[in-house]
Design a binder for these strands. Structure first.
Length: 689
DNA sequence: ATTAAGTAGCTG
DNA sequence: AGCTACTTAATT
């Protein structure tokens, strides 16, 4: 017998090895094989009678036994085939390896007051334990730190044994007030429809405004699947949404689901993955990578805010879209997919109109009331007079305020007297001034420049302009010195858990945030949402800019008025008539969709075509891209470009787009069976810049 | 990924 | 020729 083994090598198809007599090897096993002068671990992707390799085969050296279910192997193989990435590399990057989960952090198993009481009680009998307990109550949760206290080693163990401390299994803590929820008739109908479709491999688009109760429908659908012995998978676009979903899922499903996302520590990641594979874990909540978590019998996949670009893996191979993988997987495993959105992607809504996906509407908000939305000019201010007035008003009636701005840093640009824009010397993109470092930063390569000079004229003083999260935070503090202001963006993510829980407790009145606060967060205390600069959302030269603008405004606006207070939304924009902004503030998706479709059709963009993006990187990238373009044109493909891109870390880049019908990816697969290593092929690009 | 082999360009 | 820097091929 011959085993086809996928090895973690950037550019290669699986390799054939002989299965030695006496060794039992099956698809999904992890095996050790000789490879040149070295030995590598790989995954068996096929068992065949005859090799494809003409030369002499070497034998497999060792096996660790069954490692992946064959369904997962073939799913990942299909994903790698579509994105022109070797399956061995995709497997190595998507599948966690066994790893022990060590307790690094502990948490109190009782309320803080009771823990303090217990500490006082223990003070005489077990002073070391009392010290530990007091330290944990005061916020020290690192096991390493606690053990360093006098007598800490044994005391921590004792407290864990007594159940006064728990090992902290999650990288976040979140407690939700139990809200009794009765479903509206629209929700009930949606749940009924999905329930009837479980086991049929059907797809649904749950379309409803923020606050219409989509999450409740996902959870009931998953619960129904669990009741029939089928596992459930709940996906969100952004980690900051996991704590709330996790807590809510725990309440509705009766036991907390397992989390799975990229930033998990190896041991925890393995625990969730392996538990699901063994059938111990029946429900997982996670971000895009969780779409691969293996279940022996998957019933329902719910994917919230399906239009969010965060579902697309862009940076590193394999380039996949979690929504596409969810649909592919559901088709193969007979699972039901529920996509949800307040502002669906045009492509998905188009498929729903054509009946490929069944459309389920949730017409009204069930949480809070419809907020009032106003567009106001921004002018030169960061927080203009209308927004300032509204913030003051909401502060005085003890409402909470969310200020949304989609750029990091303080000033987002710097211009010299000679009109040159200060750019990263390696990436050519405009540098952003950050107050935290008192320096300029390149958002592409992370490079920090302390006191740059104009490459044109040597000038070291610049005119700084543009608004980022730091500047909004600064302005909010200046205008409202007595309010507690916090900022949640990529620079403060380390404190995400702390910031979100103190916002939930009402200790923070104004939260300034980027991307991650714009969607899904459900804090009943928020009465005002300010979108600081709606125009900047439009400034990306991308055919999806309109869609992104609509989604961001609709999503951010949906954070307001989820409690008892009526919500208010203020959108600062100097282009209030632009259709995406105009439709978004009215919450009129149908009107937006109509205009957007006309534009897409006129320019033959998706869904009226399928685009494949190819990026050449390295010396003479443009020339190489040109050669590929000519070759593909020779095969009859419609090629746009090549166009020069900004370099990345000094490496030149150029891109070309191939436009075709739905089958263009397969056709390219025949024309370019193995793209050269300097060419990245992305079968459904989110950004064309 | 890692390594070996091939090759274009340059030295003095 | 001999050397380095860089590209390409092979690994089953």
């Amino acid at each position: 017998m011959i085993a086809r083994v996928a090895l973690p090598i950037p550019r290669a198809a699986p390799f054939d090895y002989e299965v030695p007599l006496g060794l039992s090897v099956a698809v999904g096993d992890r095996v050790r094989v000789p490879f040149g002068p070295r030995h590598l671990w790989g995954i068996v992707v096929g068992i065949v009678p005859e090799p494809t390799f003409p030369g002499r085969l070497l034998p497999i050296e060792a096996t660790s036994g069954p490692f992946l279910p064959p369904a997962t192997v073939s799913l990942i193989e299909e994903v790698s085939r579509r994105s022109f990435v070797p399956s061995g590399l995709a497997l190595a990057r998507l599948v966690p390896l066994p790893s022990r989960a060590r307790t690094r952090e502990v948490e109190l198993a009782l309320p803080v007051e009771e823990a303090r009481g217990a500490a006082a009680e223990l003070a005489r009998r077990a002073p070391a334990q009392a010290r530990i307990l007091a330290a944990v109550a005061a916020g020290t949760t690192e096991v390493g730190e606690l053990r360093r206290l006098p007598g800490g080693d044994r005391a921590v163990a004792a407290l864990l044994r007594k159940g006064i401390l728990h090992p902290r299994r999650l990288p976040f803590s979140y407690r939700e007030e139990g809200r009794a929820v009765a479903l509206t008739s629209a929700q009930r109908e949606a749940v009924e429809t999905v329930r009837a479709g479980i086991g049929s491999g059907r797809k649904y688009l749950l379309f409803g405004p923020p606050g219409a109760g989509k999450t409740e429908v996902y959870l009931r659908a998953v619960a129904e699947g669990l009741a029939r012995g089928k596992a459930g998978l709940l996906l969100v676009p952004e980690v900051s949404l996991l704590p709330q979903l996790w807590a809510r899922a725990g309440r509705v499903l009766g036991s907390p689901p397992a989390p799975y996302f990229g930033e998990l520590r190896p041991g925890e990641r393995w625990e969730s993955w392996h538990g699901a594979q063994e059938g111990r874990i029946r429900c997982v909540v996670g971000t895009r990578s969780a779409v691969f978590v293996p279940f022996p019998d998957l019933g329902v996949i719910a994917l919230d805010e399906e239009g969010e670009p965060a579902y697309k893996q862009e940076e590193m191979a394999p380039y996949y879209h979690a929504r596409a993988v969810a649909e592919l997987r559901a088709g193969r495993e007979g699972a039901t997919v529920v996509l949800g959105a307040a502002a669906p992607s045009v492509e998905t809504y188009f498929r729903a109109e054509r009946g490929e996906i069944e459309l389920l509407r949730l017409p009204r908000r069930v949480v809070g009331a419809e907020p009032t939305v106003r567009i106001v000019p921004r002018g030169d201010e960061v927080i203009g007079p209308a927004l300032e007035e509204a913030v003051g008003r909401h502060l005085s009636c003890r409402g909470q305020i969310l200020l949304f701005i989609n750029r990091l840093g303080f000033y987002t640009g710097a211009a010299c007297r000679c009109r040159a824009i200060l750019r990263c010397p390696d990436c050519e993109i405009p540098l952003v001034f950050h107050l935290a470092e008192r320096a300029f930063r390149c958002h592409a390569c992370g490079r920090i420049l302390r006191d740059p000079a104009c490459p044109n004229c040597g000038e070291t003083h610049f005119h700084l302009f543009g608004v980022g999260t730091e500047r909004v935070e600064h302005e909010a503090k200046r205008l409202f010195p007595r309010a507690a202001v916090a900022r949640l963006d990529a620079d403060t993510v380390r404190d995400r858990d702390r910031i979100l829980s103190s916002f939930a407790k009402g200790e923070i009145q104004i939260l300034v945030g980027a991307q991650m606060v714009g969607k899904g967060l459900d804090f009943p205390g928020i009465s005002l949402v300010g979108i600081v600069n709606a125009d900047q959302l439009l400034s990306t030269p991308d055919f999806r800019a309109g869609e992104r603008t609509y989604q961001l405004i609709a999503g951010a606006a949906g954070r307001a008025g989820r409690g008892d207070r009526p919500g208010e939304v203020i959108v600062q924009s100097d282009q209030p008539d632009y259709y995406a902004i105009r439709c978004a503030v009215r919450g009129d998706y149908a009107a937006f969709y109509g205009e957007e479709m006309r534009y897409r059709e006129a320019l033959r963009y998706p869904p009226f075509s399928r685009l494949v993006r190819m990026v050449a990187a390295g010396p003479s990238a443009e020339g190489k891209a040109g050669k590929v373009a000519r070759e593909l044109e020779g095969y009859g493909f419609e090629v746009l470009g090549p166009a020069r891109l900004f370099p990345r870390r000094g490496i030149p880049r150029a891109q070309l787009l191939v436009r075709g019908k739905e089958d263009v990816v397969d056709a390219l697969g025949h024309a370019l069976p193995a793209p050269p290593p300097w060419l990245k092929v992305d079968p459904d690009p989110m950004w064309l810049g």
